[in-house]
């Protein structure tokens, strides 16, 4: 057997680093979208590798819904300092205050969909021509059709039926004035790949990915963290539970899983034995069969 064999993690890493370098080479003003979740942490880790010993040649931007887990924000500020990059924060609250969008009403209100307007406004205001995200094709079926370099027209819209073919290593980032690209360097990674890479590279991640005790309540079979951002229904009770999070989004729409996993090894084996996708705990995807496709067409991540 050939001794020059790459592991799946190293091959995925090589592909992602290649894409990140293409972004730096083909675009004038890229930005890395950072949520504090594991996927955007991985992308920033890969970006550091891609340009070492130079600093990452683009800033990091957080679209802040104001409904974050405290742990995520602490991690974000620490991690950005480690990377030595500039952090830009644009907040959904500002968009609401400016009358650009209206807060959703009712017990299931979430600011998830509202992020789109804040993001699109920020891209236009700061004249970014490429927004790098941590979306993966295995997450959701509309995302399975995404390109590495995904074109957005001047209204930030995605046209899934009319995408540019991507062949070999040849990425076409050419665009007209006012248009931009969304770039997804870890498209081909699965949830398991991400966890295994975090383990093998010893990447620090926010504590809420591991087991902890927390005030929770249950709604429609999903365990939620109790927070000031969610209104309880009369029959819902707050109780202490031992949980961890598989994905990190808004407190208002991210479900927790009951778990005792306190190490990466335990998390990985838990992921391996779980029979529900990670987005199964995300209420934002459950609104309709084409929920993600519709949000993406409008400019969502």
């Amino acid at each position: 057997m050939n001794s020059n064999r790459l592991s799946h993690l190293k091959e995925l890493e090589a592909e992602s680093i290649f894409i990140l370098r293409e972004v730096a080479a083909q675009f004038e003003s890229p930005v890395l979208l950072f949520s504090g979740g594991k996927d955007s942490i991985i992308v920033s880790w890969l970006a550091r590798k891609a340009f070492w010993p130079a600093k990452i040649p683009f800033p990091v931007m957080h679209i802040d819904t104001g409904h974050n887990f405290t742990e995520t924000i602490v991690y974000r500020d620490w991690w950005v300092k480690q990377l030595g990059v500039k952090l830009i924060v644009r907040s959904v609250q500002d968009s609401i205050d400016q009358g650009r969008i209206a807060e959703e009403k009712g017990v299931n209100a979430s600011r998830n969909a509202l992020q789109t307007t804040t993001l699109v406004d920020a891209i236009q205001e700061l004249k970014f021509d490429a927004a790098i995200g941590g979306a993966r094709r295995d997450e959701e079926k509309a995302r399975a059709k995404e390109r590495f370099f995904s074109h957005r027209d001047e209204f930030s819209q995605w046209d899934p039926k009319n995408q540019r073919p991507e062949l070999w290593n040849l990425l076409n980032g050419r665009k007209s004035l006012g248009e931009h690209f969304r770039v997804f360097p870890i498209s081909n990674w699965t949830e398991m790949d991400v966890w295994q890479y975090i383990l093998s590279e010893k990447i620090p991640i926010p504590s809420i990915y591991f087991t902890h005790e927390r005030d929770c309540f249950v709604r429609d079979g999903v365990i939620y963290a109790h927070s000031p951002f969610v209104q309880l229904k009369p029959n819902e009770k707050i109780e202490k539970r031992t949980v961890r999070f598989r994905t990190i989004g808004d407190m208002s729409c991210t479900g927790a899983v009951t778990s005792e996993a306190s190490t990466l090894e335990e998390v990985i084996n838990e992921v391996a034995s779980t029979r529900v996708t990670e987005r199964g705990s995300r209420i934002d995807d459950k609104r309709s069969e084409a929920a993600m496709e519709d949000r993406k067409k409008a400019g969502y991540f």
């Binding site: 094709r137 079926k141 399975a144 059709k145 039926k161």
Partner: peptide, 27 residues
């Protein structure tokens, strides 16, 4: 695999869809 609304409506695969699976030997 047919992830786009148009694909489901027409019952055909229009685009390239990427799927992932693993065995103990390979990804």
């Amino acid at each position: 695999t047919d992830g786009l609304r148009a694909e489901r409506e027409q019952g055909i695969t229009i685009d390239v869809a990427y799927r992932y699976f693993a065995t103990p030997k390979r990804k």
